[in-house]
Design a protein around this nucleic acid. Structure first.
Length: 660
RNA sequence: GGGAGCGUAGCUCAGUUGGAUAGAGCAUCUGCCUUCUAAGCAGAGGGUCCCAGGUUCGAAUCCUGGCGCUCCUACCA
């Protein structure tokens, strides 16, 4: 509602300024006044006009306010401060609009804005997921929900690097350290009570140490990596057994947080289906890659770096700063594979995967995985060839991401490159205190730091499932204390919902570029600016309707509202009206989050709305209100806030418990 | 060396395209549970927005130069 009225206002003012002063402002700034008493919108436009019109801002504002007509839905223009024009809404009619807003629920509107692809999670399938991976998946999943709420069709992909050095390492671990046959590994997968990824976590850390013991041990890594890339051998089959088992664990872990995927492209298929060979030809044809004959990169196929201007510096000799795509021994680096994969994403490669089902969610929806087309199912959805892509990948990979984007741009695909978004975010690290609490040895030097980077290689970090378990237990002890009347299962379900709310909110409340220094005390908090705080506000609202024995939906029906929203309903009720106004901004905030690729703004919205509601809840006792008209207004207010909170939480992936 | 990011209250962080008195949570202190649930509410204290210039009617925000911290930059992935 807020957004559409704002657009209407801007259009109206722009037309007026053109007609009156013959100035055409393309970007008219609209703000919200610091206090609701000053109106709903503030226009600082007169400050800008002061210069060209050679008049004091306040004078211009006076003229405009007197002469400009009111757009539909607006009640008044006023001059304020040193020259602001403040606009007041006709509150009752605006409230009716808010009530009619379609909630941005889980299902979202039917897609009308094209198809986009979001890649997130993409954890190396060789160990358990940790808190850093959780940030990726939660950010990615929330981006998916934002896009769907805004009317995009979204495919969710989780890239599986099953032929990389990390998988090779854990394979080496099974062969050289654990000394397990493939049959024994299969047994372990079946018998490890759903925590095979934990076993790999420890083993992977041991392998890193083992490499350190003797440099000759690194040969095992090299040989294994080569075997995985070639495929069709014993080692590769063992690796696939391991990586698919770990992948299943990752899917299960993420499912606990209500995070789901559509498609799992495997690196092994990119190799075996010769995506790179095709891409290499196209890149050579387009002149994006060139063969370096001199300097340190002699014998390699290289690409000019994005920042590098071709004619400026480096007048003579080879560009030593160029990015090596194909090594002098003829093998391709991972950036090359990534270029091929991204050409496929945009439908620019002319090749496709085969598809088969890999996993099934509780509602029966399948997750598809790539395969050789001859092994694939005949009937499958179409992935790839989308309008825009978002890659949720941490900030340390900015450089290779830029390279891939640059390759697509240099091939002449300008619009694709423009719709290639590296959704970059900072890592999750542990505070030194947290690391020591977990029993890790922390050096003197590290103790002085604000945070210490987690490392799967060292086995240093907090596992995702452990954190979730811990959160559920913490929530459970609260729920047990408060709701003895519920069954064990009911209490566990609510505790899980609270844990998910706390975790998702925690990961989303920081802006992307902020490093999260993880600390259990903060993450386990259910008070203040947290997910449970927002959930609690909804529970409070729900309790009112339960005791009043009315459905919140019925209160918001047009007929019911007609009498409630009488012309003077909000007169003298600034606090109540500001709650309506805040509730009407969900769609605006969703759009803002997409435009800035920053979901944190939505957590802010949820928190502020919940906070305002708690304030309202405390101040107005609804059920004991004796004036029926007043009571109806208060009920409608609770209903509208409850609806918008639930919708906002759905976009954040936060469930709404029945009781708390 | 080159590139990217950051520096705001004791701590952790917000701060829209430059706008009205710089905000929130935590922590500290003071009140409020016989009420629709206190996982809550009200209030108090707490600021050289890293420093110095500049642009502007107006700067935490934009520009320049410092200082400090982090990451990236390899024929690893």
């Amino acid at each position: 509602m807020y957004l559409s009225l704002q657009n209407r206002l801007v259009k109206h003012v722009r037309a007026f300024l053109k007609q009156k002063y013959n100035v055409d402002l393309t970007n008219i700034v609209v703000e919200q006044p610091p206090k609701i008493e000053l109106g709903e919108f503030a226009l600082p436009v007169c400050f800008e006009l002061a210069r060209s019109l050679r008049k004091a801002p306040r004078k211009i504002a006076d003229e405009i306010v007197v002469e400009m007509s009111l757009p539909e839905g607006f009640a008044k223009f006023e001059v304020a401060g040193a020259g602001y024009i403040n606009a007041r809404l006709d509150r009752s009619s605006a409230a009716a609009l808010i009530a009619r807003d379609l909630p941005n629920g889980e299902a979202g509107p039917t897609p009308t804005r094209g198809k986009v692809l979001v890649e997130h999670t993409s954890i190396n399938p060789n160990k358990a997921a940790h808190i850093g991976h959780l940030r990726n998946s939660i950010l990615g999943d929330t981006l998916v929900r934002l896009l769907r709420a805004a009317g995009y069709a979204v495919d969710v992909q989780n890239y599986i690097d099953n032929t990389g050095v990390q998988v090779a390492d854990v394979v080496v671990g099974f062969e050289k350290i654990a000394k397990k046959s493939r049959a024994e590994i299969a047994e372990l997968i079946a018998g490890s009570e759903g925590r095979f990824d934990y076993y790999c976590w420890d083993l992977y850390a041991q392998v890193s140490q083992w490499y350190g013991q003797d440099k000759a041990n690194l040969e095992a890594r090299r040989d294994t990596l080569h075997a995985l890339e070639v495929g069709g051998n014993e080692t590769a089959e063992t690796a696939q057994l391991i990586s698919m088992a770990v992948l299943r664990r990752h899917l299960e872990t993420m499912q606990r947080l209500d995070i789901e995927y559509d498609f799992l492209p495997q690196e092994s298929d990119i190799l075996h289906l010769h995506f790179w060979a095709k891409a290499f030809e196209l890149l050579k044809q387009a002149g994006v890659l060139y063969y370096e004959k001199e300097g340190k990169n002699k014998g390699c196929w290289v690409m000019t770096r994005p920042g590098r201007a071709k004619d400026d510096d480096a007048p003579e000799g080879p560009d030593e700063d160029a990015k090596v795509i194909v090594r002098s021994n003829g093998t391709v680096g991972y950036v090359g594979k990534d270029i091929a994969y991204h050409m496929w994403k945009f439908g620019l490669l002319g090749l496709d995967f085969g598809y088969r089902k890999f996993y099934e969610y509780s509602d029966g929806r399948p997750v598809w995985i790539s395969c050789d087309p001859k092994d694939g199912e005949a009937e499958h959805p179409h992935f790839g060839g989308v309008d825009a892509i978002y890659n949720v990948i941490d900030a340390r990979q900015s450089d290779p991401q830029e390279t891939v984007k640059q390759a697509i741009l240099l091939m002449g695909h300008e619009s694709e490159a423009a719709r290639y978004t590296h959704f970059s975010y900072e890592m999750v690290a542990l505070t030194p205190r947290c690391a020591m609490e977990l029993g890790y040895e922390v050096s003197e030097e590290d103790q002085q730091k604000n945070y210490i980077e987690v490392s799967g290689r060292k086995g240093f970090g907090v596992k995702a499932d452990d954190l979730l378990d811990k959160l559920i237990e913490a929530a459970k002890s609260e729920v047990d204390a408060r709701h003895g009347e519920l069954t064990e299962d009911e209490r566990r379900e609510i505790s899980t919902q609270i844990a998910i709310g706390a975790l998702r909110y925690f990961m989303l409340k920081f802006t992307k570029q902020s490093v999260i220094a993880f600390d259990f005390r903060e993450a386990l908090s259910f008070e203040g600016e947290t997910g449970p705080y927002v959930q609690y506000a909804v529970v409070r609202a729900s309790n009112i309707f339960r005791k009043a024995e009315v459905a919140p939906e019925d209160v918001l029906k047009i007929d019911a509202l007609k009498t409630v929203l009488a012309a003077d309903a909000f007169a003298g009720n600034d606090d109540i009206w500001s709650l309506w106004l805040a509730a009407g901004q969900t769609a605006k905030v969703v759009e803002q989050c997409i435009a800035t690729t920053e979901p944190a703004a939505l957590t802010k919205h949820a928190f502020q709305l919940a906070q305002q509601f708690n304030n309202f809840y405390h101040k107005h006792h609804i059920l004991t209100e004796e004036d029926p008209g007043r009571k109806a207004l208060l009920l409608a207010t609770a209903a509208i806030v409850r609806r918008e909170l639930i919708a906002t939480m759905a976009v954040l992936g936060i469930p709404t418990p029945a009781v708390m």
